[in-house]
Design a protein around this nucleic acid. Structure first.
Lengths: 209, 209
DNA sequence: TGTAAAATGTTGCAAATGCAACACAAATTT
DNA sequence: AAATTTGTGTTGCATTTGCAACATTTTACA
């Protein structure tokens, strides 16, 4: 996973942050980050900790659009945060660096040769996030909980490079991610075990397909 | 919707395309575009026409991840096309310009002042596509066909700026987009009409909520 | 360390949904 | 203009699913 300042020296990173007029803010757990910000379009870089982007519809239903950890970015542009239906909640103590979107192409920055690396990193991060969205869409378009689970476990096995691995999430989170009822999911996992598709004990997963 | 060469003069665009070593290819309808390409990572710009990004899973099930029209981009990086589960089919006669990803940051291009505009356009396009993915995820995470439809019609009304508008898609396409059974969707739309949430005649939609 | 909060597993039941199989209309192709 | 393909509307039925309401275990934290 790409870091926004990958392949940029500590020295140049500090210079870059200054030129970009970035500023860093620390938050406690379970805080709505975006309500504190009054910039125009911005990019927010998670220095440490993690956040959830949560969409709330007109009826008050909430859906977690994405979970982001250290090194990842979000912003008004990538998630229409300014549309006030999206909120951004810290899952733990978190530090975030804000960069105004316009600063990314300011005059001063353009003169530095590490700028090109920065831009490439930024583009690559956007692309990685897009791929993660695509992956989730593939799962969400499966019609049955069974198919979602089978595809998910398969994806994970591919990512881990092994048909035996440990789940990285809780089952509750997984149900949210797949957008299915948690108890119904538990039931389906039981069936999948009984039919021999998978073995699961605790967080240890083994897939047989 | 941003165009990759927005705010760049015709003259500079041609220069840019040359520097980027881009090449354009014409395709007929219903052709798999990506199978013809043997580049490394690339960005493909749709000059005219439209394509569908289709994901095929290990069982042969197909899901349309995204539909793209003129001015939009796709590529190995934004959609893991090289993972050979994704194919890209033209929906009509289509012209595509290919740009190798590495060329985007080549030495020559960096000297031109319109380069910065190009990069900003590219980033903005990526961001727009991300927003479209987010929007779809919001819909797909709704648990019932009813909620998907209500949210979709509402979104469309917001986009159009009017509670009365014409559907831009066929109902068959809409069912695919929302990932529900078409006939079950038709049934649900009937109920929504009967209960007065919406009026639909042909492609004319009026929402009452 | 004790208590509160979160996660997990289970089950009955009603509701929603996919599926299949139609008929018919509209659009596209030859 | 005829033929083929694609889109639309309908319905019965079996299956899947969400929901609610539990008990129990595990984790977090004051």
């Amino acid at each position: 996973m790409t870091n926004l300042f990958e392949n940029i020296s500590e020295r140049n990173m500090l210079k870059l942050k200054r030129i970009l007029r970035s500023n860093s803010v620390k938050y406690r757990k379970n805080v709505n980050v975006v309500s504190n910000v009054n910039l125009d379009d911005f990019i927010a870089l998670i220095d440490s900790g993690s956040v959830q982007l949560i969409y709330t519809d007109y009826e008050g239903n909430k859906t977690v659009v994405e979970e982001l950890g250290a090194g990842e970015i979000f912003g008004t542009l990538t998630s229409s945060i300014n549309s006030e239906e999206i909120s951004c909640i810290t899952k733990e103590d978190t530090q975030i660096t804000y960069i105004e979107y316009e600063q990314i192409t300011n005059d001063e920055i353009f003169k530095n040769d590490f700028y090109i690396i920065f831009i490439k990193n930024l583009i690559r991060i956007l692309i990685e996030q897009m791929n993660r969205r695509n992956t989730r869409i593939e799962l969400l378009t499966k019609r049955t909980t069974r198919d979602k689970l089978l595809a998910y476990f398969k994806q994970m096995a591919q990512e881990m490079g092994n048909k035996r691995y440990y789940l990285q999430t809780t089952f509750t989170e997984l149900a949210d991610y797949l957008s299915v009822d948690r108890s119904a999911m538990t039931r389906e996992i039981k069936y999948l075990k009984e039919e021999g598709f998978i073995d699961i004990h605790g967080k240890r997963v083994i897939i047989n397909y």
